[in-house]
Amino acid sequence: MHEGGMFRETFTRGLWKNLPPFRLTLGLCPSLAVSTTAENALGMGLSTTFVLVFACLFISLLRRTIPGTVRLASFILIVATMGAIVEILLKAFFFPLSVALGIYIPLIVVNCIILGRAEAFASKNPPSLSLLDGLGVGLGFTTSLTLIGSIREILGAGQWFGVSVFPGWFEPLAFMAQAPGGFLALGLVLGLMNWISRKRGEVFVQG
């Protein structure tokens, strides 16, 4: 494969074929916990993308320096450093968002997507490709989160990004904004994606 094609393939893989959290069933906790509104979901997605991109970049730069035996511990430390930076930045510049996301911000560190990409891709590929891979997967994750957040906010509160979208007669389905709604929305969207893939004749292995 020529150079340009490889870059494009690396970037777009995260947007459909490897789309988290549907195709890679990783990173489920934040997808469900903070997707009660579209705005929270978008904020969480972008924070995760930030951590993912920089963690992939630094891990890739250090991939020849880190000895194989303490690999995972070193990766976790790098990811935790990025996580701490995001936590502090959010507190300083987006305080209401950081309150809304609560303990799920420090929990970005244990989001399996990040460690998964670090181990599967960044530890074996040059920095430029790893950066793109992180960006692709991160943006895919942000899109999915915002989608789930939108579904839950529209059905659960009759609003989208805080603006009412239904006429007065609509009775919001309160449970969509509570815990069960997250599971149901994610499960149904996943079913829909499977259906589309089946129509297009794509073969994929889930897991």
Binding site: P180, G182, G187, G191
Partner: peptide, 23 residues
């Protein structure tokens, strides 16, 4: 289980129903 819901999809919906019970 309908083909499109097999695997993780039906598991998540089941978890959702359990979650309603826990509500």
């Amino acid at each position: 289980v309908p083909k499109m819901m097999q695997g993780t999809a039906i598991a998540l919906v089941t978890a959702g129903l359990m979650s309603i019970a826990f509500l």
